[in-house]
Design a binder for these strands. Structure first.
Length: 818
DNA sequence: GCGGACTGCTTACCT
DNA sequence: ACAGGTAAGCAGTCCGCG
């Protein structure tokens, strides 16, 4: 079987080149098609003398903004760059869609799906087992109309078809460094590559090592199968390239910006001809001539991925952090930062470990990550290289454009949408935001036993579905729809046509709720299939959670703020009505945020009544999401701790959990969590409260007596989100510390995490903050730490009715004592 | 010159 | 480069203070 994994423009044949993965030979094959020509559309007749034009024809498209057919000129040109240049032509449209994307959309190429070569054609190859499962799904949704049935079939086939076991290798290199605080520059590539390690899912672990003067081999690291030594660096690189060519997929961590880029420029510098280098270097990415390069750093940095698929388990996107969070393995910690000084043993071991964990990030949990990428490739209809690097908005744009093309709908321009649909009508609570968002109920502070959390399943996507929302249906052109308003906003919604977004997002949402969520928990399925279903479920979740937000984002090509605003408004309407109903049933609503409510020990029959009422009223499933033994609500919004009936501790928004909090306070917080985990009854809580008090008292004394073990335990860890000279308005503490580091020759760039301690002005020469690396014990401002300890723990001490000053420190006023 | 009240900036979080 | 809402701490500004 041939799986389509990539598509790109090939200038040599002025056509499209598809990369196909052959799961029998485990090699990439290429399919070239030069019959497809680039084109764009325009409403005005293009002048005759534009020399790139091959053909122009008048075609009919459906204008969804105005609900009528329009005639537009389809202008075919002799090569894709002419489409790029069409911005000179008045009213050129659909000219921003890349050539290879046009090919995929117009020819309906199913990315990531199985094909076969037959009679000189590339034909989709149906799979009987998958097709019968799809029929099973469809039989569950019989009551739906034709459009919806078709969408279900389309989505389901993308997610039900199996994926092959992709043969792949991971690569990591170590380069000689002159300055331990600086990363070698890949563009100049002046320093030699000391070692390259390749680890593969076909059982190879090979280290390519450059022989360095004065070093001897005394010990072979235990994580390699084969070590090849080279006296000449160019031979080393060529061997690495050969091995790379044996594998259709190459996995790196930051290979776009470092490993592959370095190898390419280093090879050129050593006189290796371009032809023999398998790498193509672009401005921001590195690709392979024959294979597919996946840069996991890019993939794990995709915000939606991080939050929805991996539940923000990793706090930054470094290999060490991601690997520790997902597979429980990290980089090898070493004292030595000078690669050149490391023994062969240490160098190889370090490098191979990186290659190993990089590979394992794609293999753990039955190839979860690679399967996630394949499913997103299928849903978005983008090549692997794009889907693994670009953000969720480009995935959504991609399948939206595909659906427009398939249905012969003219794709509206952002200007048009803005002009026809108008602006927002609500005022945001936060200054500078475009419209009003969700409701957060003020929580009732205190420790509450027996609390249920109820929530709406995928509220915002459900609103798309139920209320028929999309750019075409909001403020539609029909007079008779103008009365169809919901809630507080003046926008009306079309009653005549179904919005494309409503159909696409709605069907995806139903498929997730009624099929994949159930299948992912099905005990009777074998493990592999179960994980596959859970990955399908997760990939839908990622797309859906972003689907509302993109319509409120200027960067999105179908940006339509009234749609986003209306969805938020309907959500407020739904949750407020639900809270009122719950209260009218006598329930005690303690808290609520956006799509959920916390209820104190509701009687079963009242609960059932509320659930039924919401289903009837809004057509959206409202169900018990969590049951807490007890919840400590701090009185602040988005800020609580709860212990579920299964004994899991949920911490939301508390400072003790935040990544900038010093480790010493964090670990005290985690100890507190352990104590709270065991509490079953209000009586036990009284005992635990005493334990917590003495625990915090211990930390307090550690500060007071300056008895902490390491300075690192005191460090605040804050990210500089931009380059240092871009802080124009204020200079926050972490930036001050960052500047001190920079002055010492450290690399500080956007995204660097700064570890600093708070210092005493009088002791530290007028400085209130210092990088932990440069700070001395006696400079620490212990009072600042005690203040921070206080405010961190007050978030749970208050609901537990413990006073920091009186019960922990044992005085009436903290200030007096200080 | 220094503090308190205030606003705004910045980061990390929640849904 | 999916949205808006929230907590927290600090930077910077203004004003009063004989």
């Amino acid at each position: 079987m041939l799986y389509v994994v990539s598509a790109s423009y090939d200038p040599d044949v002025n056509g499209i080149s598809l990369k196909l993965y052959n799961d029998e030979t485990e090699k990439i094959e290429v399919w070239v098609d030069s019959s497809f020509k680039a084109y764009f559309l325009t409403k005005m007749k293009p002048s005759l003398n534009w020399k790139s034009i091959v053909k122009k024809e008048l075609v009919t498209k459906y204008d969804a903004l105005r609900d009528k057919d329009v005639k537009v000129w389809k202008v075919t040109v002799n090569n894709p760059s002419a489409v790029k240049n069409s911005h000179n032509i008045n009213d050129a449209r659909e000219n921003h869609i890349k050539f290879f994307q046009c090919y995929i959309y117009d020819k309906d190429i199913k990315m990531g799906m199985p094909y076969l070569r037959r009679n000189g054609n590339l034909e989709f190859q149906p799979n009987q087992e998958s097709e019968s499962r799809i029929q099973e799904i469809l039989s569950q949704f019989k009551e739906l109309d034709k459009d919806e049935q078709d969408m279900f079939e389309k989505w389901a086939s993308l997610l039900e078809y199996p994926a092959p076991d992709f043969k792949r290798a991971s690569l990591d290199i170590e380069v000689m460094n002159k300055d331990e605080n600086k990363v070698p520059n890949p563009e100049t590539a002046i320093l030699p590559v000391l070692t390259a390690c390749i680890s593969t899912n076909r059982g190879e672990r090979i280290a390519y090592v450059l022989i360095q003067e004065g070093k001897t081999v005394n010990k072979i690291p235990d994580n390699v199968d084969k070590i090849i030594f080279f006296t000449e660096e160019d031979k080393l690189l060529l061997s690495v390239f050969n091995k790379m060519n044996e594998y259709p997929f190459l996995i790196t961590f930051n290979g776009d910006d470092f490993d592959l880029r370095y190898l390419y420029y280093r090879a050129l510098r050593l006189g290796i001809p371009e032809l023999k280098i398998p790498i193509i270097v672009r401005e921001r990415i590195c690709m392979l001539k024959r294979g597919i390069h996946i840069d996991l750093y890019k993939f794990f940095s995709i915000k939606a991925m991080k939050i929805y698929a991996f539940k923000a388990k990793y706090k930054d996107e470094k290999l060490d952090t991601v690997a520790k969070a997902l597979i429980g393995k990290g980089k090898i910690k070493g004292e030595e930062k000078w690669m050149a000084k490391m023994s062969y043993h240490d160098l190889i071991k370090y490098c191979m470990n990186d290659a190993d964990i990089t590979l394992e990030l794609t293999t753990y949990n039955n190839d979860l990550v690679i399967n996630l990428i394949i499913m997103l490739e299928r849903i978005s209809r983008l090549p692997i290289e794009n889907v693994s690097r670009k953000s969720v908005s480009s995935w959504i744009r991609s399948f939206m454009v595909y659906e427009h093309r398939q249905r012969n709908i003219l794709i509206p321009t952002p200007e048009e949408i803005k002009a026809v649909k108008g602006q927002t009508a609500s005022t945001a609570i936060i200054k500078g935001k475009k419209y009003k968002g969700a409701i957060v109920v003020i929580p009732i502070s205190g420790t509450h036993f027996k609390v249920l959390v109820l929530d709406f399943a995928s509220l915002y996507p459900s609103i798309f579905k139920v209320y028929n929302l999309g750019y075409s249906t909001i403020n539609c052109p029909h007079e008779e729809c103008k009365s169809n308003t919901i809630g507080e906003l003046p926008h009306w919604i079309c009653k005549k046509n179904r919005a494309l977004e409503s159909l696409l997002i709605g069907s995806l949402r139903d498929l997730r709720v009624f099929w994949y969520k159930k299948k992912a928990k099905d005990k009777f399925l074998d493990k592999k299939l179960k994980t596959w279903y859970s990955v399908a479920e997760q990939s839908i979740k990622v797309i859906m959670n972003a689907s509302y937000g993109v319509f409120g984002s200027e960067k999105f090509s179908l940006y339509c703020p009234p749609v986003a605003e209306e969805i938020a408004a309907i959500a407020r309407y739904i949750i407020s009505k639900t809270i009122k109903k719950a209260q009218s049933l006598g329930m005690n609503v303690l808290y609520g945020d956006t799509d959920s409510i916390f209820v104190k020990d509701p009687p079963k029959e009242k609960l059932d009544e509320l659930v039924k009422w919401t289903q009837d009223e809004f057509g959206i499933e409202f169900e018990v999401d969590k049951a807490y033994k007890y919840v400590c609500l701090s009185g602040r919004k988005k800020n609580y701790l709860g212990v579920t009936t299964r004994g899991e501790v949920d911490v939301k928004g508390l400072t003790g959990k935040k990544k900038h909090t010093p480790p010493i306070i964090k670990s005290a917080f985690n100890e507190t969590k352990k104590l709270l985990k065991e509490v079953e009854t209000p009586e036990q809580m009284e005992v635990t409260k005493k334990k917590i008090s003495s625990l915090i008292k211990g930390v307090y004394k550690t500060f007071k007596n300056r008895e902490w073990e390491n300075m690192e335990d005191l460090s605040f860890n804050v990210t500089v989100t931009r380059e240092l000279d871009e802080y124009k308005k204020t200079t926050p503490q972490h930036v001050k510390a960052a500047k001190m580091l920079q002055a010492q020759g450290y690399d500080v760039e956007a995204g660097t995490n700064i570890s600093f301690v708070k210092t005493n002005k009088k002791v530290s020469g007028g400085v209130t903050v210092k990088p932990v690396k440069l700070a001395k014990r006696e400079e620490v401002d212990v009072n600042k730490y005690i203040e921070f300890l206080k405010s961190t723990f007050e978030q749970i001490l208050e609901p537990l009715d413990i006073s920091f000053s009186e019960d922990i420190i044992g005085i009436r006023s903290l200030k007096d004592w200080l």
